[in-house]
């Protein structure tokens, strides 16, 4: 696993039609240690997706620096796995082939990558769906495939942009618990973006509150692990932290 360092990151969009500039990210610095799980919350439009896209290498930064394991980021790469809000599964590939895509790009032979894919699908309870196409799955199942696809490529850093926003409440809770379980096993470095304050606190070691393109607060979460919703919901620390973060997000 590798650490993630973000130094004085800045992003200004230029709209060629309106001829105007929008500064989405003013000045953000953020360090994530190896194997640490960090959630980022903030009001809509505060620049969360923009930051993640720059870390993923999809967008060039207009200022500052991003380092993964000490090396500067130049474009997308297999060291950073991305889980998309829109799932982004390849509709023309079966679930098995979607999960095996990363290994395929590394040149892993067919039999071996199928074995890897099946192993990860079993981890997410999706073995029965291996030969189906994405549009034959429910939303919750699709998102599990999305998570597992990123994991199966064995990335050092996991980047997730509101991955559970479009699944129903029950499924979301299950997915969150599965994610903490898998994370504890594999110890990835995680940057997790969300709107949902409860989700942010439940999952993370630290919650970062963003406002207008700047880091407003950085709050450690010391709840014991493993975490399950039945217990955490009752936890006084959880309630207090959630209320605190919610307050800050609304003030942001």
């Amino acid at each position: 696993m590798k650490s993630l360092e973000i130094r004085n990151l800045q992003k200004t969009y230029f709209d060629p039609y309106a001829g105007t500039k929008v500064t989405a990210v003013q000045d953000v610095s953020l360090d994530i240690r190896e194997g640490e799980f960090v959630s980022v919350v903030g009001p809509s439009g505060c620049g969360k997706t923009t930051i993640l896209n720059m870390v993923a290498g999809f967008l060039p930064a207009t200022g500052g620096e991003i380092r993964v394991g000490g090396r500067p980021v130049k474009g997308p790469g297999a060291d950073r796995g991305v889980v998309f809000q829109s799932f982004a599964l390849f509709p023309w590939k079966t679930v098995l082939d979607n999960v095996g895509f990363g290994p395929k790009m590394r040149g892993v032979p067919k039999a071996e990558r199928d074995r890897i894919a099946r192993e990860y699908l079993a981890l997410a309870g999706l073995s029965h769906a291996a030969d189906r196409y994405p549009n034959e799955l429910s939303g919750g199942m699709q998102q599990r495939v999305g998570v597992v696809r990123a994991l199966a490529n064995d990335p050092d850093v996991l980047l997730m942009d509101e991955p559970f926003a479009s699944v129903d409440a029950q499924t979301r809770m299950t997915l969150q618990e599965e994610l903490t379980r898998i994370w504890q096993e594999k110890q990835h470095t995680v940057l997790f973006i969300t709107h949902d304050v409860g989700e942010a606190v439940f999952l993370a070691d630290r919650v970062v509150v963003l406002s207008k393109g700047r880091v407003m607060r950085d709050i450690p979460v010391t709840l014991p692990r493993p975490r399950v919703w039945d217990e955490v919901t009752e936890d006084e620390d959880f309630k207090r932290l959630s209320a605190e973060v919610l307050h800050m997000v609304r003030a942001a």
Binding site: A56, G57, F58, G75, P76, G77, A78, R80, G81, V82, F84, S86, A88, L89, F90, F101, G102, M105, R106, R149, A150, N153
Partner: peptide
């Protein structure tokens, strides 16, 4: 969808792939 080529790139696909 724009996210599909991005997903492929972040899974380690070279541009021609």
């Amino acid at each position: 969808p724009r996210d599909l080529p991005r997903a492929a790139l972040s899974l380690g696909a070279p541009r021609w792939r």
